[in-house]
Design a protein around this nucleic acid. Structure first.
Lengths: 354, 354
DNA sequence: TAAAAAAATGTGTGCGCACACATAGCAAAT
DNA sequence: ATTTGCTATGTGTGCGCACACATTTTTTTA
């Protein structure tokens, strides 16, 4: 049971070479004779050598620089929470020589993203954390990162084909199913259920479409005779969106509504109250201030928490671990679909990062 | 923006003393003149010095030993999951010189706990992780640990008055409220709701009583005319417990049942099926295999996840951080009350430690 | 066959800290 | 006045690794 720490020195002794040679073998720096190579590899294999990551980082003392690309947090509470996660990670890793540079772009302006992406490349970071909102604009960016051998971590939205270091977020298809289930709970009979995409550019709708698919799939499986309505309300003017929601509420006898965008739920809550229809079940996303208010008031029945703060936090952590300690992160880090109600809300607000 | 790393050496230079003196001041080893002390403290205050924890651990290379005291995992799936968390933590911290020694006791035998506690003391660990099931037996144990200056971390059940290094777990009062809410969702009218304590020694019932209080509180606040039944079924023989449940089901028109012990829910599920009463809403605790089965089958409607694996994992991590890196953990680490349904179940099973 | 070039191998140093140990300074005891 | 016995202060070393550099061995070339 006494597994003493094996050092490079020990390996060297066992293999009958010097530490320098062992070092060269471990780091594949070449300049080693076949004979020595074999000896070292052999003992390296026999003894299960694990380098002391602590000592490793001590010596180098290189300052790593991570760039984080997210939508402007001052314009959107959801992204503000992501930003908090990034800042939290920075504190957590302050020990080490890390410089975290955050780049903001406008969520509704693909050109702003392009510009910012360029700036990131110019800054020559050692790693990148990004929420790839603009699919088409992001692809060439990843190409360039790949060329420069800069690892990148995706969060919030996944694009598996660009082979990021890792992805952090939720399974949005499953998320749509959970949303549907929460609307359908204890709803006897068929009824009509609506899924609303509000105020999100349709360009980055992969996101929303996944939820929609899951939503439909749930009813197909569990209540085939339920009616499913899909509405996409993309107008920039709030008034026209409100009007559309109003019409929906007047003309249709709804059993429940799922709002796929985190900001949309409060708008729908307003309308439900205005039309005296707050018995309609409403499910939204994320612990935004407004959403919390309506959840407490009983207008919103459930929120699905995407935990943006933790997503960003873990994104940075995975990068830091990879760069600093050479720890490979898992292929993807899928978060559970957290269901928030009036009663367990507090436990979520009070608990730290989970 | 360029905050170069400040080392002890720098402090020494600024204060006009040697590193040795600075070291003595930092570690309060005494043997420093008032004059020098003041100088060092002053610069130490001006410059915000943060020791490099990495370098600190490198030098010492002391082997820390942590003792974990938990109920025998081979007898109980819930504790098995805790055990997994402990093992996971061990892997995570394998880097460092850690030895994790796990001590098991019988959940139903206070004497076995006493014996094990003694063994722990004899092993002279540097830190202790424990789930304090037996309140009275555990108090003198903590006294002894305090005498010996051994830090201890509690998880699962809290005993704030013994002032542990930290506590990790859930707010059980809130948990009872959430359980009640889940039973009451969309239940029009008053109805009768039962809370069942099954097969848990009443000795460690602080646990269960807290949930019960929250349960009652919910109905007091939200449905004062609902009827609340409390049943405690402590018999060792399963048959007699089943009989009691059967009688309950036959004689009472129930709207919902909350089972406070993780193992109890599957028993109740059985009985609900046997009596053809599976429309009664059932809420239980934790992702035990049996519970998962009944949740998928729709007999159990919701599970509240206590996340024993993560509890234990974080317990060890907090201890390790404290011992190795001298990081003070938060006073308590409260977990959110996770609601599991048929639809989001998979996301919880697939996600790693969250 | 000697000299030069190239390849293989070995040695030394620093990273920042903790701690053991060495030395300086200074007062009390002889 | 010299020694002893303190305290205050300074110096040196090791932790395990990475990497620069020095040295040895082998190969090539004249």
């Amino acid at each position: 049971m006494d597994k003493k720490k094996i050092r490079i020195k020990d390996i060297a002794q066992l293999a009958g070479v010097s530490v320098g040679t062992v070092d060269r073998v471990i780091h594949k720096r070449g300049r080693v004779s076949d004979e020595a190579l074999e000896k070292v590899l052999k003992t390296l294999h026999e003894i299960d050598y694990k380098p002391n990551l602590i000592a490793r980082t001590l010596g180098s003392s290189k300052t790593y620089r991570i760039a984080a690309l997210i939508p402007d947090p001052s314009l959107d509470e959801y992204w503000h929470q992501s930003f908090q996660g990034i800042n939290h990670a920075q504190e957590e890793w302050a020990q080490y020589d890390f410089r975290l540079e955050t780049f903001f772009f406008n969520l509704y302006d693909r050109n702003s993203f392009k510009k910012v992406a360029e700036a990131v490349l110019e800054s020559e970071p050692d790693g990148v954390l990004i929420s790839p909102v603009f699919y088409h604009e992001v692809l060439p960016f990843f190409e360039l990162l790949k060329d420069r051998n800069i690892p990148y971590v995706l969060f919030n939205t996944n694009i598996p084909e660009v082979q990021p270091l890792t992805f952090i977020g939720q399974d949005l298809f499953e998320s749509g199913k959970v949303g549907a289930e929460l609307l359908h709970l204890q709803q006897k009979g068929a009824g009509t259920f609506a899924i609303l995409h509000i105020n999100e550019n349709s360009l980055n709708s992969v996101h929303l479409l996944e939820k929609e698919k899951g939503f439909k799939e749930y009813f197909r499986e569990n209540a085939p005779d339920a009616r499913v309505l899909v509405l996409e309300l993309n107008s920039q003017e709030e008034a026209s969106v409100e009007k559309a929601i109003g019409m929906l509420l007047q003309n249709t006898e709804l059993a429940g509504i799922l709002v796929t965008t985190s900001k949309g739920a409060s708008l729908v809550s307003d309308m439900l109250q205005a039309h005296g229809k707050d018995s309609i079940r409403l499910v939204g996303y994320d612990l935004l201030e407004e959403n919390i208010k309506y959840l407490k008031a009983g207008i919103i029945d459930f929120l699905i928490n995407q935990n943006p703060k933790r997503q960003a936090f873990l994104g940075i952590s995975h990068l830091a671990n990879y760069l600093l300690l050479r720890k490979e992160p898992p292929q993807q880090d899928l978060f559970p679909l957290e269901i928030i109600t009036k009663q367990n809300l507090r436990s979520y607000l009070e608990s730290g990062i989970h």
